Every structure is written in structure tokens, then in C-alpha cells.
Simulated assay, not measured.
Amino acid sequence: MSAYGAITTRNRPSGPLASTLWHCKPRTSPSAKYLTIHHLTLADALTHSGLLQYLHTCFAEELERGMTYPQEILQGETYTQSMFEGYFFGADVLLGVVGEGNLPDGKNDGSVVELSLDVARNGRSWEESVAGVYYVKPNYPGRSSHICNAGFLIPPAQRAKGFGAVLARSYLHYGPRLGYEASVFNLVYVNNVASVKLWEALDFEKAGRIPRAGRLRKPDGSGEEYVDAWVFYRRFDDVTSVNEKAS
């Protein structure tokens, strides 16, 4: 639920988008040369035993850290799986899976791969196989619903491997194919240096700075502090040609 109430997704494709392949940079874990990205809805995720439970645990831990998302888990409160599903799976979700072995021949970033999530996982645990996940949903209702928002989550076991940058590149591919013309990130806290640098590198512009936007926990655990946040904006590339293909 947003400040506008429930927001309906417009121009959304009728079925799941194709899975795609994305190269990892050299600094990524040596065993991970690529990721495959898989489009999920809540109904899809429910068919994969343990997936939602794992993602819910990772997201609840991130909220408990209190440093990146604005949601707050109060003392004595439990962030339930149904709360997670309602928020994170409110529209479309893209799941990144760590590729195994060498890169398939002739595959560039965004190349379609005929690979189901189960095949990509190949019997591994979710902790081993899930590189990260992000949602894509409208940022505004009605006449502004062509602008989307996204939220990214990298599980603790997969951090500092460069997977966030790979997922971010894939977002520029999937956003317009889900029917959106542009993206807005409402709250990128200024002390989240890695995220700020990432979106700047992908040509997002700083549309504004919100003073004291977040009451965040300090990294050293010594308490809380108020932190400013950037609003980032970018129009997706080749929107017209993508929309023409979808019509």
C-alpha cells in the first residue's frame, strides 16, 4: 500500500518475460561468471518450495539492520511472511541465479535463455543459488503509473561479489518490457555510498535531496542518526521500440 492506496499496474505483459543471461565482472566470485534472471509473480514463487521463506528471512534481516529500507520492525513486532509477500511481491519480481560453469557461447547481456528456475538452480540450496532479487512496481497511480520504482535485496551470503551491479543492469532491460517509461528511486540514503555510485554510473540523475529523510541505525551500532536521501530518476532507453513490440 502506498500513500495513494493500492496502485494498479498498467501495460503489464500478460505472461512472464523470458529469462535472460548477464555477465559478471571479474571482481565477482571466481566461480560465478554469469547470472540468469527469472521473472516471477507471487503465484510463481509459491510453486518453488522454500523460496519465499528464504527471501522473507533475508528481507526481515535487512529491515532489522535499519540502514537501507525505511520500514521499521518495532520492538516485540514480527515481520511476517505475509507482510513480506504483500510488499515485495505486490507486482513483478526478478530473481537472479548464480550461473554454473562457463558462459554459454555467443550470449551477450540480456540474451534470452531457455532455462527454467529449477534447471538454473540445479539442485543447489536457495542460499547457494540466489544471487539477489528485486521488485518492480508503479511508483505513482493512474496518470503517472508509467513511472516505476524498484527495491533490491542481496542475501548476506552473496554480498561483496558485484551481483548488485549485475541486477541493476538487468533492471534497465526489464523495466521497459514491463510497460514502464522511466524509473524513480524515492529514498537512496546518502550514506549508502555503493548504491549512490551504482545509480550514478548507470546515468540516473539526482532529481532532489531530502533532508533528514531517514532515521537510520549507525553502522557501529552506537545508536541512530538522521540521514539525507537522494531521489534518483532515469528514463529507460528505447521505450518506444519496446512498447511497439508489446502492442
Rank of each mutant, 00 (worst) to 15 (best):
H173W: 12
V184P: 01
S247L: 14
A131C: 10
P156H: 10
P156K: 12
T9S: 11
G223S: 11
H56M: 08
E200K: 15
L167N: 04
A201N: 13
I7E: 02
A213V: 05
E77K: 09
H173Y: 11
T36H: 08
S222Y: 06
L17N: 13
W230I: 03
E181K: 15
A6H: 15
W230P: 09
A120M: 12
S144Y: 15
N243K: 14
D237F: 10
A168I: 00
G90Q: 15
A45K: 04
D109Q: 05
Y171N: 10
K33A: 01
P156Q: 11
R215A: 09
V93S: 04
P138V: 02
P13H: 07
S195L: 07
G86Q: 15
H39T: 03
Q81G: 07
D44M: 03
G5K: 06
F185G: 01
S247Y: 15
G142F: 12
K161T: 02
Y233M: 05
R209L: 12
A182S: 12
V227I: 07
S247K: 15
G132E: 00
D105T: 13
R143G: 13
L17I: 08
A213G: 07
F88V: 01
T47R: 14
F232A: 01
P219E: 02
A246Y: 15
G50W: 10
E224M: 14
P141I: 00
A60T: 05
S82C: 07
G90I: 01
G96V: 03
V133K: 04
S19L: 07
G132N: 08
V119G: 11
D118T: 08
V227H: 05
A168S: 14
S145V: 03
L55E: 08
T8H: 13
E225W: 15
T41V: 08
L17H: 12
R169C: 07
V190H: 10
Y69D: 06
A60R: 03
W230Q: 06
S241E: 11
P176Y: 04
P104D: 08
V193C: 11
W22A: 00
V188G: 02
Y189M: 03
G96A: 13
L51H: 08
G66T: 02
R65C: 09
T80H: 09
R121C: 05
